[in-house]
Nucleic acid binder design. Sequence first.
DNA 1: CGTTGAATTGAACGTCGTCAACCTCCGTGG
DNA 2: CCACGGAGGTTGACGACGTTCAATTCAACG
Lengths: 254, 254
Amino acid sequence: MNSAVRNIVVLNQNRQERASACQACAKKPLCPAAGSESGSQAVQKIVQNGKAVYVAGNKFDGIYVARSGFFKSYAIDADGVMQVTGFHLPGEFFGMDGIESGRYSDHVEALDTSSACRLPLELFSSAPRTLQADGSVEPAVLSLVKLMSRTITRDRNMFFTLGKMSARRRLCVFLQDLSERMAQSGYSRTEFKLCMSRTDIANYLCLALETVSRLFGQLQAENIIAVDRRELKILDMTALMQGDEVHTRTRKAG
Amino acid sequence: MNSAVRNIVVLNQNRQERASACQACAKKPLCPAAGSESGSQAVQKIVQNGKAVYVAGNKFDGIYVARSGFFKSYAIDADGVMQVTGFHLPGEFFGMDGIESGRYSDHVEALDTSSACRLPLELFSSAPRTLQADGSVEPAVLSLVKLMSRTITRDRNMFFTLGKMSARRRLCVFLQDLSERMAQSGYSRTEFKLCMSRTDIANYLCLALETVSRLFGQLQAENIIAVDRRELKILDMTALMQGDEVHTRTRKAG
DNA sequence: CGTTGAATTGAACGTCGTCAACCTCCGTGG
DNA sequence: CCACGGAGGTTGACGACGTTCAATTCAACG
């Protein structure tokens, strides 16, 4: 019940930071920032399971790229209600919300022993060009702008998921999205570990945790997935994508 | 009240677009982009009620600032389901979603005879500095980045509204937000015209239109607001903000 | 083992969506 | 002037979906 509030209290950051040598980084092929000529400005940070990368209110000190492990970000509103706003896999960015106000507006914590690289904003504004995955070159700032544009588009899609979909479809979409991103991060597309708790999933999808639990059972009974605690296997990706079921809640499109 | 507010001057403009002289613009004090040294690159566009500023798939040709009137933006997903993603008042930006892919991903249409100024992206990247409202000066690109950062933060807040709030609170928050922005655009904070249909509101808040209609009635019965068709008066701002009611749905925070 | 937190399962309630009828406003044309 | 029609909005009845409350199971750890 009060776990949301308790989470924020527990944050003591033992800062393990060190300059990151992008050139030598094992994750280079995965990292969207590794192409930058000024990669050496990046700062690597190791975060233990449950510990925070930063908390809401912290002074903005850069954009982050997840390097290894798993992160979740969440915000807490005026009434103390928590909202998980996203999960971050290796190769994905977070922290863009802090740019405008100069302070992060959400909390980000590791769901595993993880590491992330902090990219100071100056890295984008000073560095003239960035090497793209496809080999092309573009101004570094443009990379940042595009990155944010993508985030906006993604968030908008979340409106659909939260607002217009049944609980079941929300979970299906979530698993499908996760599968996609797991694959992008180099894991198996069909068999991976859910690093977050049911509670986190439920909160993220704006459902009761009981509902999530029941849906997992339901999907398993239909041989669409197989779950054992946090180990997940996707058995029928097609069914998962279609959100197959009797009721596909058809709301008035307006 | 059949409004005297109906003083819409219909502008019969031959050209839909024309170069905008920011210096001479009457809305200059309101416009967040007016300070730019390269303001003359902006292109003004007049859009009739119900007509589109752009549609999904259009090639990205810049960020827009609403100048007068009222806009709504919406997306249509793979299944053809529509989702209203936002409303835009004078002085507000839209179109940021198109930057990354090079194409707009949503549709934007005028809910009144309206005008907006298109700001080509080069305006931000080439112009070295922007004059801020407070008189300070900063690189133009940074303005754009901050703008997008703000949008992200705002969208995140929408998660709360859609996911964690009861229908009633959603509507209250919506009206409160609208009131705030109306005031920012120079209108009355407590008495203004809802330019959008009930259907649009419902869609935006992910509710059935009947629910919205019922809630308007309910809020009126409690003397929190007074509605006559699309004319709205806010009678009790405090109650509106608190979302006062018997049930304030207390979901598990997780 | 006992304890603790996470997950599952069951049962009952309530919000809100669905269906449907009706109303109001407004423009059109006889 | 009134009949007509259609779009937008209101209101009522009903029940599905998902939340809430509560009891139980399960795994992990000291």
